[in-house]
Design a binder for these strands. Structure first.
Lengths: 159, 159
DNA sequence: TCGAATTGCTTGACACGACAACTAATTAGT
DNA sequence: ACTAATTAGTTGTCGTGTCAAGCAATTCGA
C-alpha cells in the first residue's frame, strides 16, 4: 500500500521495528503534535507573536476588563508559574497586556489585555481560524470524534 | 455524562466555545501530546537523561559502529540542525557519544554511541518500554489503529 | 581551472518549558 | 497576638526549538 511512503517507521528510519502498537502510537503522537504546532506557529509568526503569547491574549480577551491573576492564566495554559511570569514580561513589553496589583489581595497581580492587544487579536482572528481548521481540515467529522475520544482517554486514563 | 469532568472545554475554561471541531481537536492534540511527553520524561529523568537525548542514543544504537553524520540524526528527529549540534554537545560531554571528522567528506561529523551510552540504554530499556506502553496502554488496539491512521493523515494531508 | 553556489555544521540570540529556591502577603492555629 | 503554614509571584538555571549568520569543505559551471 502507498501508505508505506509516509509511515512512522519510514519517517524514523528505525532499524528496529517498534515493540508494541502503543509504543509506535506514542511516537506518532509526538511527531504529529510537532507538525501541527509548527504549522500554527508559522501562521502566527508574520504577526510577530508566538503561539504561547497568542494563547495568553486569547485567554485575557475572554476575561474582559477585570483581567485575571497570573496563576489563573498559568492554569488555563498547561504551564508552570515561572513560564507565565516571563511570558507576561515579554507580552507586556510589547504593550499587549498590562499588570496591576490587586487591591484586595496584594499578593495577586491582575493581568488584562490592552486595546493594542485586542486590535492584534482582531487582525489575527481570521487567519488563525483558517489555520486551525486547515491543520485538521482533511479529517472527517467521524474521525475527529474518535480522535477526541481516544485522546481524552489518553489524558485521563481510567483509574 | 461524567465526561464533562475532564473535557477539553472544562480544562481550558474558555469563555467562548470552539468555533469548529477541527479547532477543538487541534487544541486537544497539543495538550494530549504535552501530557504524554511529560509522563515519558518523568520515567527518563531518574537516569539523568532527557527524552531528546534518549532519542539520539536510540538512533545511534540502531546505526551501529560507523555512526551517523550530524544532519542525518537531525532528520530522524524532526529537528533543525542547530538544535542537534547543541544536543550532541551535551551528550558528548556526558560521555555517551563521540564525534569524529569523516575522512571522505571532511565537512561531515560522524557521531557514534559509546559503550557507556549503550550501557545506559540497556539499563533503561525495560523502564522505557513499560512507560511507552503505559502512556497509551489503556487504548484498545482498534482505537490505536484508528488513531494512527488519522494522525498519519494529519501529518501528510492529501494534496 | 577558478570563482560561485551548495553542503554540513557551528555559533549567537531569543522564546519556551521545568525544577528549585526565594520574597512578600495572607491565613490558620494555638 | 504571634508564629507557622500557605499562597502568589519572581528569579536563576538548564535543556531545547528556531531563525539568522558565519565558516570550511566540496561541487558546479563557464
Amino acid at each position: 500500500m502507498s501508505n508505506d511512503e509516509h509511515s512512522i517507521l519510514h519517517e524514523i528510519r528505525q532499524a528496529q521495528p517498534f515493540s508494541t502498537p502503543a509504543q509506535e502510537a506514542t511516537v506518532a503522537l509526538m511527531r504529529t503534535a510537532d507538525v501541527v504546532r509548527r504549522r500554527i506557529a508559522a501562521t502566527m509568526e508574520p504577526f510577530g507573536i508566538t503561539t504561547q503569547q497568542y494563547n495568553v491574549l486569547r485567554i485575557l480577551r475572554g476575561a474582559g476588563e477585570g483581567g485575571l491573576p497570573t496563576l489563573e492564566i498559568a492554569q488555563r495554559m498547561i504551564e508552570e508559574a515561572p513560564g507565565i511570569t516571563r511570558l507576561l514580561d515579554r507580552i507586556e513589553k510589547k504593550g499587549w497586556v498590562k499588570r496591576r496589583r490587586c487591591a484586595e489581595d496584594r499578593r495577586q497581580v491582575l493581568v488584562s489585555i490592552t486595546p493594542e492587544g485586542l486590535a492584534l487579536l482582531a487582525a489575527m482572528d481570521e487567519a488563525v481560524l483558517a489555520a486551525d481548521n486547515g491543520a485538521l481540515g482533511s479529517i472527517s467529522d467521524a474521525d475527529l470524534r474518535v480522535l477526541m475520544r481516544v485522546m481524552d482517554r489518553i489524558r485521563n486514563p481510567p483509574a
